[in-house]
């Protein structure tokens, strides 16, 4: 089964596609996130069919594709919120053999390097905005309360929400909650950020304020993997575009190039559907 997939994949892979071997010998890795042959089943459903992907430091990689393509699952495998069945990866210099059960310390150190922003924001509802940002810093980075709050305030200013520090999440808008969630993830000074459809639960207007913050984060040099339906973001902010369908990458490369002249018919159909909706 795996062999067949590997074969078909090499055949259909466009030129220059990554073959799927993690390079662990390099002292200064060329890639900040490197996935090789990541495979995942949910029951009998093969959701990731040996996906390989490389993201350079500072790169913004957008992942698009129809729902059920495995985009979110792929993202969630990178910080091991999902446990893949097989494959391996290097994330911020840390090698992970995905076929094995993960050691607790390795898991925490991996997650420390990778921030994540969720579609449904997932703020801690019982804590104020400031405490949402301060608590992980105190517990994970062992910062003092004062340090955590000072740093938290800087980040809230950065996302334009300094005046909401003492509000509870339920009292602020979805767009504001998502900006807090971004600040909370940034507070741990991650090497890469994963965005799982960060604007899908928001009205266009609120989505825009989140996209503005994401753009600012991208321009600060953060390595970002963004699962999104925002084609403008993918095109204008993204450096690399990945198109997924049915648990595999069907096409990847320069966003401008793919959007104006996709190599795959399926990509063309998908783009036509999302752009004209």
């Amino acid at each position: 089964m795996t062999e067949t997939i590997a074969e078909t994949q090499t055949e259909t892979v466009p030129k220059g596609r990554y073959s799927g071997k993690v390079d662990i010998g390099l002292k200064t890795p060329k890639y900040l996130v490197e996935l090789a042959q990541v495979s995942k089943h949910f029951g009998s459903n093969h959701v990731l069919k040996g996906v390989s992907l490389r993201v350079k430091p500072g790169e913004v990689c957008s992942i698009i594709g129809p729902s059920g393509a495995g985009k979110s699952t792929l993202l969630r495998c990178i910080n091991l919120l999902e446990t893949p069945d097989s494959g391996n990866m290097v994330v911020a210099g840390q090698y992970v053999d995905l076929g094995k059960p993960q050691d607790r310390r390795a898991l925490l150190s991996l997650r420390r390097n990778v921030g994540m922003v969720f579609q449904s924001f997932n703020l801690f509802p019982h804590l104020t905005v400031m405490d949402n940002i301060a608590l992980p810093q105190r517990r994970v980075l062992k910062r003092t309360e004062a340090e955590a709050k000072e740093h938290g305030m800087e980040l809230l200013e950065r996302v334009g929400l300094a005046d909401k520090a003492d509000s509870y999440p339920a009292k602020i808008s979805g767009g504001q909650q998502q900006r807090v969630a971004i600040a909370r993830a940034l507070a741990l000074e991650p090497k890469a950020m994963l965005f799982d459809e960060p604007t899908s639960a928001l009205d266009p207007e609120l989505a825009q304020e989140v996209l503005t913050v994401m753009k600012e984060v991208a321009s600060s040099g953060m390595t970002m993997l963004v699962v999104t339906h925002e084609m403008n973001f993918a095109r204008n902010v993204g450096d690399h575009l990945v198109v997924m369908e049915d648990g595999a990458i069907i096409e990847e490369g320069d966003p401008e190039q793919i959007m104006s002249d996709p190599a795959q018919e399926r990509t063309r159909q998908f783009l036509a559907a999302v752009i004209n909706h």
Partner: peptide, 30 residues
């Protein structure tokens, strides 16, 4: 307790006991 906030705590690299102590127990008791 919403699974989302638990998942977020895990994604923020909080150790399991911390997730229980700071996220699950306070919300659950409330």
């Amino acid at each position: 307790v919403s699974p989302g906030s638990i998942e977020a705590a895990h994604a923020l690299a909080m150790p399991g006991l911390d997730v229980l102590r700071f996220i699950i127990i306070p919300q659950g008791l409330r």
